[in-house]
């Protein structure tokens, strides 16, 4: 998956990639990185997401010392090892997910938040392992689980090992399900490939941000395969809602209250 609209660029002013309006950066940040003109939801880093979702100073990070290796000595135009280094320096994170325990409106939960600023949130061994451990912690501590998906899919540079993370995380979700645990899956722009085809689509509740791209095969792959022009609304959150694959589409400002509501209905 290629990055269509990356994060939030630096500077005092910024342009909304959707409506083109020039926006004062501070205003955008205050509106949870949503365009005040057109409601475009900017892609945000895992740390920003956690700060927006959790009650202040309640997030306690876990599994932060799990770091990637280069098991296949993968080299394309650039060595995977170097790519990792660059991404780690850029983001300050070891890999593309941040996990831990937090509180949303006073309700405790385990969360795993994928980070689109690190190799497009792609899932390799570290992402799979940390998400699995977060699921296991939710079972162990009898807490609700929230996973925020925002990912281009399985990471090619770890090949089949990345593919196996799909099986690993889905198997862990099965255990959470058997234990009667609550799993809320939040899909942010973009959620594609191996992430969609594993835990992201296995929530007891699947909710999505407006206009988020949610797909198995990305629109470019499909367009290349079947050689037809795809409608703009294809594979957007609202399209999935219409076809019965998400429970509801929710504006970022209402996320906290809706997650709290789901927890209240399901957790004794």
């Amino acid at each position: 998956m290629q990055l269509r609209k990356e994060g939030v660029p630096e500077g005092l002013w910024m342009r909304c990639p959707e409506c083109g309006a020039m926006l004062f950066r501070k205003i955008v940040e205050e509106s949870l990185h949503v365009c005040p003109e057109c409601d475009y939801h900017f892609r945000i880093s895992a740390r920003t997401r956690i700060a927006q979702l959790c009650d202040p100073d309640t997030f306690e990070e876990r599994f932060a010392d799990i770091e990637p290796v280069d098991p296949l000595k993968f080299v394309d135009k650039k060595a995977y090892r170097d790519r990792l280094k660059t991404e780690q320096d850029k983001t300050g994170n070891p890999d593309a997910v941040v996990c831990g325990k937090g509180f949303i409106k006073g309700r405790p939960l385990m969360l795993a938040v994928m980070d689109p600023t690190f190799m497009m949130g792609s899932m390799g061994s570290v992402v799979g392992e940390k998400i699995t451990r977060t699921i296991e912690a939710a079972i162990e501590e009898k807490l609700p689980l929230l996973i925020v998906s925002c990912s281009g899919g399985a990471r090619m540079q770890e090949s089949t090992l990345s593919l196996m993370q799909m099986a690993k995380t889905s198997a862990a979700i099965a255990r959470l399900d058997d234990a009667g645990g609550l799993f809320i899956s939040l899909l942010a722009d973009p959620t594609t490939g191996g992430v969609t085809a594993s835990f992201a689509m296995l929530g007891d509740f699947i909710i999505a941000e407006p206009r988020a791209l949610i797909a198995f095969a990305g629109p470019r792959t499909i367009a290349n395969t079947i050689k037809v022009e795809l409608p703009e609304s294809f594979q957007r959150a609202e399209f999935l809602l219409e076809h019965g694959f998400v429970d509801f589409v929710i504006h970022r400002r209402d996320l906290r209250s809706e997650i709290a509501r789901l927890i209240d209905f399901c957790v004794k």
Partner: peptide, 21 residues
């Protein structure tokens, strides 16, 4: 898995995810 409109409309990702689980 088939990358096409119908497959996506009917939940290609969900069907695979469900099988894994």
């Amino acid at each position: 898995a088939y990358p096409g409109i119908g497959a996506e409309e009917r939940g290609q990702a969900e069907s695979i995810a469900r099988n894994l689980m």
